[in-house]
Design a protein around this nucleic acid. Structure first.
Length: 587
DNA sequence: GCCGTTTTCGGCCCGACTGTTTTCAGTCG
């Protein structure tokens, strides 16, 4: 049986194939909307059973039938027919920059092109320029796009932390130009997405040309891809693409909002604007004329412009609560904002009182217990958990029973010297059979047990699910560390039935970790929402192996906010003693 | 394909940039 994410993926594929068929673009969008709606469902199976899918906004009769069929059988006749009709390579072609469904269809009809290799050969032979609507430049552009695509496949996306660092340096360069009145990072980096494909920058200026020139002159710019009146696109030496939009200061808030996205959030918001008698674009919010007949294509009347001084004002003008950037993914935030049900107390970094999940030189950390303690104290923390690795993690210098007892002595000595409260803990391996690798007589004397999978990650879904469920049923199980073991850009999450595991975690009254290591950043937002919906509390952790790593707390906060996690749901926003009581292995 | 205090048809977000066009189509975000 397919889960909701698999079904959403197939609906998207179907939408793409219909797009290639030249179908009505609004129909294509309906499939995308339907896919999103399915992903957001908490009770897909129940709704399929009850036949109540059509009650969900975005799912009508036709999609409900298809979803039910996919859910029941895992197959869909229309999808299989379209897959058979289009060469398998054709979906690949859609990933070539500047090549969309229309051009692909034209190339397929005229030259029989159905794969990347055939496309490249046709461009090199000069056959493409002979097709109506294509020319020499397009041919060059496609070849260039193919090169870029390969470079991108090698570089792939970048980690959020790297994107933010690159972005901040670039912003500093742009701010050096006196023509820059305001400069901000927008796009997925501002929304805090785990990985970032390109940087979006918005600037306020009376002289857009000057800022465009300032961007092009940035030493790390490898080449200019597009340069217009208000919009400039460049590629950095790293392969990262940067889009700069320059607008007059009065349009900065709406432009920042526009460029922050996400696209799905924008589209829905503009629909809401239209329903309320406005039209919304990056150039601002305009009142629609009372009788729109014949006025659709007319540019907005400048007199109809609603002054907008901030993003919050924009939402307010549309009768909505302000939506924080991290939530703008069209996963229910606009519906909540309209109903006044958006959480106003999303966790913030200043709410956090304790550094959780810290390694020291006792295992594979680079700083001593005392150095970590003093650094946490300097950051204003009330407590820090020392959670070095356990015996099985020999590759990471895991502690055995004898060494962890000696570590407790050192923790006690350091505690004499520092104000920050030190909590004794471990990051214990979850073994293949779901057991932990310290005996209970050790675990019961600890304040904090983070339990994580570090080995045998290629087990099949059944075995991994059983392993985790079994571990969570242990009385000493308290915190699920870096849940699914992924390493961004490197290693996917291991296979398991996450919702089943979360059910077990809820039953055991355990907590889930949000790991701030920039390569981990899990549990990811969609599962975080599934966790808090089950009443599972959250721990924001740094997984720090050095003093510098304590800054990872910021990453954990971002991920938690993207998962709609509220202050009260985070255990380490509580004072030390309350935190200890909530997570200690014995009641 | 979805949706409805303009409801069963006719709408559906909006604009910038590029290239092949001589007024616009395609792509992108």
């Amino acid at each position: 049986m397919l889960d909701k994410f698999a079904i959403a993926r197939l609906l998207r594929e179907l939408g793409t194939l219909l797009e290639l068929e030249g179908e009505n673009p609004f129909k294509v969008r309906a499939y995308e909307n339907g896919a999103r709606a399915v992903e957001a469902l908490a009770d897909l199976s129940a709704r399929v059973e009850a036949g109540s899918l059509t009650e969900v906004s975005g799912i009508g009769e036709a999609l409900a039938k298809k979803i039910a069929e996919l859910h029941r059988t895992g197959r869909l006749e229309l999808l299989e027919r379209l897959r058979a009709k289009h060469p398998p390579g054709i979906l690949e072609l859609l990933r070539v920059p500047d090549l969309g469904p229309k051009k692909i269809a034209a190339l397929h009809a005229a030259l029989g092109i159905g794969t990347i290799a055939e496309l490249e050969a046709a461009c090199r032979d000069g056959r493409v320029r002979a097709v109506k609507g294509f020319g020499e430049k397009t041919e060059e552009k496609i070849l260039e796009g193919l090169g870029r695509m390969r470079a991108r496949a090698a570089e792939r996306r970048v980690l959020l932390a790297d994107a933010l660092a690159t972005g901040e340096a670039l912003l500093a360069h742009l701010r050096e130009d006196p023509a820059a009145l305001a400069v901000a990072l927008a796009g997925s980096a501002r929304r805090g997405k785990e990985t970032v494909g390109d940087l979006d920058v918005v600037a306020a200026s009376r002289d857009p040309g000057a800022l465009s020139a300032q961007l092009v002159a940035y030493p790390l710019v490898a080449r200019t891809i597009a340069r217009g009146e208000t919009k400039t696109t460049v590629e950095l030496a790293s392969g990262l693409q940067v889009d700069l939009r320059v607008v007059p200061p009065e349009d900065f808030p709406t432009s920042l909002h526009h460029l922050t996205g996400s696209k799905a959030h924008q589209v829905k918001l503009r629909g809401i604007a239209r329903d309320s008698g406005f039209t919304l674009s990056e150039w601002g919010l305009h009142r629609l004329p009372p009788d729109p007949v014949g006025a659709q294509d007319a540019p907005p009347d400048p007199a109809a412009k609603v002054p907008i001084a901030s993003e919050a004002e924009l939402y307010a003008a549309l009768g909505l609560q302000p939506v924080p950037p991290e939530l703008r993914e069209d996963t229910g935030e606009l519906e909540a904002a309209r109903a006044g049900e958006l959480p106003l107390d999303l966790v913030r970094i200043e709410d956090v009182r304790g550094m959780v999940h810290c390694h020291t030189t006792w295992s594979d950390g680079r700083a001593s217990v005392e150095e970590m303690a003093r650094a946490a104290e300097a950051l204003g923390m009330e407590y820090l958990t020392v959670t070095d690795h356990s015996p099985t993690a020999s590759y990471a210098g895991g502690l055995d029973e004898d060494r962890i007892r000696r570590q407790w002595d050192e923790i006690a000595r350091v505690q004499e010297k520092v104000k920050v409260r030190l909590l004794r803990g471990t990051e214990s391996d979850i073994l293949e059979d779901g057991a932990l690798d310290f005996p209970d007589r050790i675990l019961e004397r600890l304040d904090v047990v983070v339990a994580s999978v570090h080995s045998r990650m290629k087990m099949d879904e059944d075995a991994m699910t059983r392993r985790l469920v079994r571990c969570m049923s242990l009385p000493v199980f308290k915190i699920w560390g870096h849940a699914l073991g992924r390493l961004l850009l490197d290693r996917p999450s291991f296979a398991c039935r996450v919702e089943e595991v979360l059910d077990a975690l809820a039953a055991s009254r355990g907590a889930v970790e949000v790991n701030g290591d920039p390569r981990r950043l899990e549990l990811e937002p969609r599962w975080l929402r599934a966790a808090t919906a089950r009443g599972i509390p959250v721990v924001l952790s740094v997984d720090a192996h050095s003093v510098q790593n304590l800054r990872y707390l910021e990453n954990a906060v971002t991920v938690a906010r993207r998962g709609w996690v509220r202050r009260g749901q985070v255990l380490n926003t509580r004072p030390a003693e309350a935190f200890r009581k909530a997570v200690r292995p014995v009641p």
